[in-house]
Design a binder for these strands. Structure first.
Lengths: 115, 115
DNA sequence: ATATCTTATCGTAAAGATACGATAAAGAGA
DNA sequence: TCTCTTTATCGTATCTTTACGATAAGATAT
């Protein structure tokens, strides 16, 4: 976020915005979908740069997107020999679901409507 | 999104990313929270530029954020004399909730784990 | 009509995001 | 050791976002 006055806002708002920001690109959405199909929460073989082949982007660009997802904790990365494997962090994902749900839920219950 | 290859991705992914993008700033999160406290779905007096007083931002900047929220349909704006009033579009909001929920839900069910 | 209030838009500056080629780093295999 | 593979990072170009002051546009009131 450019020239953002992040400090002036509520912590919860900033946190939610960061999460949203991580999802604010179709490539990162696609990465999550791809990983979900390949890594089980019990382990299983996590994926590495095959993600690159799935996406219409250069390797360097995909690496950047992976980094961003890792920074917010939505995915984890481990090094396996020459390659590096990624998998979804299911706990963070569940937390994200809760945060979005609570946010929207609170908006909806914060009205005094009759509809 | 700069230099984005939007056309190369799934439509649903692009749509979800756009929604996330709209929520990707604490000011816009705060705006939605503020509006939710002031506008009921049954009508009630919607809010105008009092939002400006709530936020630590200049009037022009707030106007920009409002515009962005309006573009994705999360809020509606109507002109009331010299002032313009905004209120949450509850239908779009519900749709957003469903989209996020479905996305994360699909990720979770797309694993073959036992945990 | 004129002055006043409110808000959207314009112009602009600075920083972030996106994309890619090239390169570096680190392990595997010959 | 040398090479190959794989991936992260660097450097760079370009577009977007954020932010603000200034201005325009529209309604109200005097």
């Amino acid at each position: 976020m450019p020239i953002t006055k992040t400090e002036e806002f509520r912590k919860a708002d900033v946190k939610l915005a960061e999460l949203a920001q991580a999802l604010a690109h179709p490539a990162r959405i696609a990465i999550l979908r791809t990983l979900a199909g390949w890594c089980s929460p019990t382990g299983g073989q996590c994926v590495c740069g095959d993600i690159v082949e799935v996406l219409p982007l250069a390797q360097a660009t995909v690496s950047q997107h992976l980094k961003k997802l890792k920074e917010v904790g939505l995915i984890d990365g481990t090094i396996d020999g020459p390659r590096s494997c990624y998998c979804i962090n299911w706990e963070t994902l569940a937390k994200a679901e809760t945060m979005f749900g609570n946010f929207i839920g609170n908006l909806q219950s914060n009205n005094n409507g009759t509809t």
